[in-house]
Design a protein around this nucleic acid. Structure first.
Lengths: 122, 122
DNA sequence: TTGACATATTCCCATATCGGCATCTATAGT
DNA sequence: ACTATAGATGCCGATATGGGAATATGTCAA
């Protein structure tokens, strides 16, 4: 077997940095392909290919306007990704708590004990 | 150019379904490689390779325990992904609102109009 | 119809994936 | 030192990527 197709799901589709840029750009407002290419500095064929992938997994919708194609982000498809990553929220909360606790315990004890190379902002 | 490396960032690393499973599994508790392989039904070398990718991008941490390696998820690294997807939350909220509005407007008018094939659970 | 403009598609290529299998390394116990 | 166990790594093959360049499709306007 090989790597999963970019069109296999939204996770694979958003792995590409350019596609993430496109999604952000198209979230606010629908745009024709040419605008995307010009604004993000990507060549038109590349934009079309990325849009094809995004469309295949339902991350964007299209509408024809004369000879132009207007694309916009379909946020609903991003939701499952947000929920998947959200499952870890309680854990990074805990980790932060522990870091805080350590920092407080340390500064409350002896201010000059340096284990490795501490970085401090003045 | 080719596809971005799986180790280029967390987005690419979590594109693999197996790696997502591993992350979920290791979020609750640290585990040795053998446990992961057995619990998720993946061969040991594959698990090691996936863990290498996850470790390279900081999604897991390791600790040695005798001849075993105990891995656990570092949730903090998932946070940026959650925040990136979160940027679209306001948009899917709006989309849902519009869907609701339409549904309410429709049911308030004529209750028997069926556009396509509605599915109902008994 | 012809021409101009907006997008989509095709072909090529260098690169990297992931799984299977075999093998190497490292640690523990005797 | 020797053996067993836990993990890591290396090599292979089939597959697919994404950019570039050229070309095809489709739509409007005269």
């Amino acid at each position: 077997m090989s790597r999963a197709a970019t069109t296999s799901d939204a996770f694979n589709a958003i792995a590409e940095p350019r596609r993430r840029e496109i999604l952000s750009y198209l979230a606010l407002q629908e745009r024709p392909v040419g605008d995307i290419a010009a604004s993000l500095g990507i060549r038109q064929p590349s934009v079309s290919k990325h849009l094809r992938v995004l469309h295949d997994v339902g991350l964007v919708r299209v509408r024809r306007d004369g000879r132009r194609m207007l694309y916009r982000t379909d946020a609903e498809t991003i939701r499952p990704l947000h929920e998947w990553t959200g499952q870890f929220e309680r854990f990074w909360r805990h980790q932060l708590d522990r870091i805080k606790e350590r920092a407080e315990a340390k500064s409350a004890a002896q201010p000059s004990r340096t284990e490795s190379q501490p970085k401090e902002e003045p």
